[in-house]
Design a protein around this nucleic acid. Structure first.
Lengths: 218, 218
DNA sequence: AAAGACAATCATATCTGTCTTTTTTAACGG
DNA sequence: CCGTTAAAAAAGACAGATATGATTGTCTTT
């Protein structure tokens, strides 16, 4: 996709057009929002199937079952589409954690299981695809970095709220980093052929034991 | 780079030409080997600087200080260049381990330190760049997969040889996977902005403690 | 003279952004 | 209630940029 900056200053045409426009509150043109969602979804699917580099506007349009012209009507350029997809992925990650936090039982190892399940979903693959691309793409990085920081902060806050007994423990940050590193590292290694799938289960159980041993006396 | 397969069947011209050719053992034209090495080096540098997707033949040629035409003289197409770079990276990884094994002192945690240092080098970034691209590029994957498996095997064999007391321990595989996952996961997270650098040291120390506690009674 | 190293150029393919044209569809007045 | 109309949606066409493989030409070395 390459995220190229628009050369000329477009005459400010076709602004993002928030679903519920200023004065016309309800419109059948709320269907536009649905189409936009369809395009964003197609973008994420393309990220997973083709990788960031090969996620081109024609491919996304085809994946969404639309013409490229129609697609450009909803997103003025490829950058806008990627931005929207990133925002969508980010919110999806946050929502998933909120859901997990709303569950009644809060076992220490629930976080591990929940996050691991998260990492199996396409959203994580797409996000990693973007994160890797951002390493050599300053524009992409400027979009992604703040969101990554926000996610880390909310992740920690969520965990702190779920397990108040950890509050103030010097082991808290370590346990968080350990969990994230191991789980995300495994997810990536699985995708890129770096590790054998048979090792996943033992690793999960070991991590759970680790966390328990790091926990302060309840 | 995209690793596209050559369409027509080239008339088998210009075979790889191993540095020391069959009968003409010594030639000043061994400079060709030097140029090839320069090109391979430039390729790795480009992988780090621009990422796999943006590592194009013009960029590599420029980085090597050669014309693209000259480059095509040494590597008939971009695929051949990438293949050579992969082989180079693979051998570099293996050599680094052999060097580490030749050192006299074999502390348990030496492996951690040594591997972690390895992961800071450009070679690992380049390799991960390739591994991620291979997820959606079957041709690249067919080249990379066997090498990854070979690396894993040699990595384990090396460790087993260095620490014979682990032999037969059910914890051995776990310790190996744990080390690889944590260290590689951290290296990637650092590159992609997924974790805070301040957390690296505590993680390294924790991993070392982990390995010690997994070790069988000496 | 012959071969290899190197350079320059050509032709093709694809992606991107922009512009123009057609089709659909919702809104409004008769 | 329905037909007209204007805007939105969709499709298509076009030019610029860039990457790629291939071809041809030049110069040095043996």
């Amino acid at each position: 996709m390459a995220l190229s900056r628009t050369r000329a200053v477009r005459p400010a045409a076709r602004q993002p057009r928030n679903a519920a426009a200023d004065r016309a509150p309800t419109l059948q043109a709320a269907k536009a929002a649905q189409t936009r969602a369809r395009l964003i979804d197609a973008t994420v699917r393309c990220l997973v199937k083709y990788g960031y580099a090969n996620t081109t506007t024609p491919k996304v349009a085809e994946e969404a079952g639309l013409s490229r012209g129609a697609m450009m009507h909803h997103f003025e350029n490829g950058t806008a589409l990627i931005k929207a997809a990133i925002a969508e992925l980010h919110e999806k990650r946050l929502r998933a954690f909120r859901r997990a936090a709303d569950r009644p039982e809060h076992e220490v190892t629930d976080l591990v299981e929940t996050y691991w399940r998260q990492l199996q979903k396409p959203a994580f693959i797409a996000f990693h695809e973007l994160a890797v691309a951002a390493r050599t793409d300053a524009d992409l990085a400027s979009i992604l970095s703040p969101l990554q920081e926000e996610f880390r902060a909310k992740f920690n806050a969520q965990a702190e709220q779920l397990f108040p007994e950890w509050l103030g423990s010097p082991n808290f940050a370590l346990a968080m980093t350990l969990s994230q590193t191991i789980l995300e590292g495994m997810a990536i290694s699985l995708q890129t052929g770096g590790m054998e799938p048979a090792q996943v289960e033992p690793m999960l159980r070991h991590l759970e034991a680790q966390i328990r041993s790091l926990a302060p006396a309840a």
